[in-house]
C-alpha cells in the first residue's frame, strides 16, 4: 500500500499538503485546477520533488529518500518519455536494465511487451520515425517491462487528439488490469475520470484530498470541485 504520511511540499510560494493512503490495485485520477499541484504531487511520489516534511511509505517501507529509479514506480511525463537516439526496443530495454546489457530472456520480454502494445515489427525504429500514438505505445511498453507495482502518469497523452488519447487510456486500463498495478494519473478531463478512474484525488487550495470513490464524488461534488468542474 502507498501511504503519504504528513507530506508537505514547498517550492517558493507554493505549498501542498497530503496525508492519505492509496488503495492497492485501484485506478486513481488526480484532478484539480491548473497550478494546484497535481504534477508536483506525482513528482514528489516519483522522487523528483523533495518533501519539506512527512514520509512516503510503500508497504510500510519508508521510500521518502529513495532515488527515483529505486522506487516501486514507473512514471510517464508530459514529454520526453523516449530517448530519440535509441530504437524503441532499446528504449523499452532501458526499463529492464539501465545499462542495456540484456540477456536473451530480457530481449524476449521486451519484444513481447512491444508486441502487447501493438508495435510488433517496429522494434528497430527510432521514436522520430513513429507517429505520436506509436510513441506513446512504446513508452507504455517500457512501463510494462519495468514491472513496477505503481504507475504514475503525468498527462503523457496530452498532445494526442481526443480519439487517440481515449485509445491510449483504454490500453493503459487493460495493462494495469493485467498487471494489477496501482495507477495514479493526472487529468483535466472529467470524461477521462468517468472512463478510467475508480478513485479521485482532488488537489486544490494547497491540499491533496484523500482518494474518494469517483462515481459518488462526480455525482455529488463538494463546492470546490463543483466550481472546478463548472457544474
Amino acid at each position: 500500500m502507498l501511504r503519504l504520511e504528513g507530506v508537505e511540499i514547498a517550492q517558493g510560494d507554493f505549498a501542498l499538503a497530503a496525508d492519505f493512503d492509496v488503495t492497492p490495485g485501484r485506478r486513481t485520477a488526480v484532478i484539480g485546477p491548473s497550478g494546484a499541484g497535481k504534477s508536483t504531487l506525482l513528482g514528489a511520489l516519483g522522487g523528483f520533488v523533495p518533501l519539506r516534511a512527512g514520509r512516503v511509505l510503500w508497504n510500510a517501507r519508508d521510500i521518502t529518500h529513495d532515488a527515483p529509479g529505486a522506487r516501486p514506480m514507473a512514471m510517464l511525463f508530459q514529454d520526453n518519455n523516449l530517448f530519440p537516439h535509441l530504437s524503441i526496443a532499446q528504449n523499452a530495454g532501458l526499463g529492464v536494465r539501465p545499462d542495456l546489457k540484456l540477456s536473451a530472456e530480457d530481449s524476449a520480454r521486451v519484444a513481447q511487451a512491444l508486441a502487447r502494445v501493438g508495435l510488433e515489427g517496429l522494434e528497430g525504429r527510432k521514436p522520430g520515425e513513429l507517429s505520436g500514438g506509436q510513441q506513446s505505445r512504446a513508452a507504455l511498453a517500457r512501463v510494462l517491462v519495468q514491472d513496477r507495482p505503481v504507475v504514475l502518469l503525468d498527462e503523457p497523452f496530452a498532445a494526442l487528439g481526443p480519439a487517440l488519447r481515449r485509445e491510449m487510456l483504454d490500453l493503459v486500463r487493460s495493462l494495469v488490469e493485467e498487471t494489477g498495478a496501482t495507477l495514479l494519473m493526472v487529468t483535466h478531463d472529467p470524461q477521462d475520470v468517468r472512463r478510467m478512474a475508480e478513485d479521485v484525488i482532488f488537489v486544490e487550495g494547497g491540499r491533496a484530498a484523500a482518494p474518494q470513490p469517483a462515481q459518488a464524488l462526480l455525482e455529488d461534488p463538494p463546492p470546490a470541485l463543483r466550481a472546478y468542474l463548472g457544474v
Binding site: 522522487g47 527515483p68 529509479g69 529505486a70 512514471m75 530517448f83 537516439h85 539501465p98
Partner: peptide, 24 residues
C-alpha cells in the same frame, strides 16, 4: 530534457554517458 527520464529509469554513471549523453 532527459534528466527526469534517466533518473526514473535509474540510468546513471557510465550507462548514462553510454546511452544518453555521448549519443546526443
Amino acid at each position: 530534457a532527459y534528466d527526469r527520464l534517466a533518473r526514473s529509469l535509474g540510468l546513471r554513471g557510465w550507462a548514462a554517458w553510454r546511452w544518453l549523453v555521448l549519443p546526443r
